[in-house]
Amino acid sequence: MQGVVKVNSALNMRSGPGSNYGVIGTLRNNDKVEIIKEVDGAYEIRFNGKVGYASKSYITIVN
């Protein structure tokens, strides 16, 4: 499943599905991501070869 990031500035990509996990990357508006699955209000995603988590509130599914 594919998604597009929709933010005003940037969205943190984290090592786990919550803000208490470390930041492993930054997503920008209109970045395209692969959605692997939904976990606790976040999506597990793949972006630029990395797998991490981002809030589903800022990712629009575009299948």
Rank of each mutant, 00 (worst) to 15 (best):
G18E: 06
K50A: 08
V4G: 01
V51M: 09
P17S: 05
N8R: 14
K6A: 08
N30P: 02
V51D: 04
N12Y: 14
K37G: 15
R14M: 11
G22F: 12
N48M: 12
K50C: 09
G49S: 06
V4I: 14
S55I: 09
D31G: 02
I61Y: 05
T60A: 11
Q2V: 14
G52N: 01
G16L: 04
D40F: 11
N8V: 13
S9W: 11
N8F: 10
G41P: 02
N29D: 09
L27I: 05
S57R: 14
Y43R: 00
K6F: 07
R46I: 13
M1G: 07
K56Y: 03
G52A: 05
T26F: 10
K37Q: 11
K50V: 13
A54H: 01
G18Q: 06
I45R: 00
Y53P: 00
I36V: 09
V23T: 08
M13K: 01
M1E: 06
I59K: 00
S55L: 10
R46Y: 12
N30V: 02
M13R: 02
S9E: 12
M13N: 01
G3F: 03
V7D: 03
I36C: 07
K6E: 06
V62L: 13
G16P: 02
G18H: 07
I61N: 03
Y58F: 13
V23S: 07
K56W: 03
A54L: 09
I59R: 00
I45P: 00
K6D: 04
V5K: 01
N20D: 12
M1F: 11
K50M: 13
Y53H: 01
L11D: 02
S9H: 14
S19N: 13
L27F: 02
N29T: 07
N48E: 12
K50Q: 11
K37P: 00
M1Q: 11
Y53Q: 01
K32I: 15
E34T: 12
G25A: 15
G52W: 03
I35M: 02
V39L: 11
L27A: 02
I59H: 01
K56D: 02
A42D: 15
D40E: 12
G52Q: 02
K56T: 09
G41E: 10
M13T: 02
V4C: 11
S57I: 14
V23Y: 05
I24E: 02
A42E: 14
I35W: 01
Q2D: 07
G22Y: 12
Y58T: 05
S55M: 09
I36A: 02
E44W: 09
G22T: 14
P17K: 04
T26K: 12
T60M: 14
L11F: 06
Y43V: 02
V39T: 08
N30W: 08
A42N: 14
N20M: 10
I61H: 05
G25I: 10
Y43T: 00
N63E: 13
N12E: 15
K32V: 15
N8L: 12
K32P: 07
Y53N: 01
S55E: 15
G22D: 15
L27R: 01
E34P: 01
N8Q: 12
G52T: 02
K56I: 09
K56E: 03
K56R: 07
V51H: 09
G25E: 12
G16I: 03
N20A: 11
K32R: 13
K50L: 14
Y43W: 08
V51G: 04
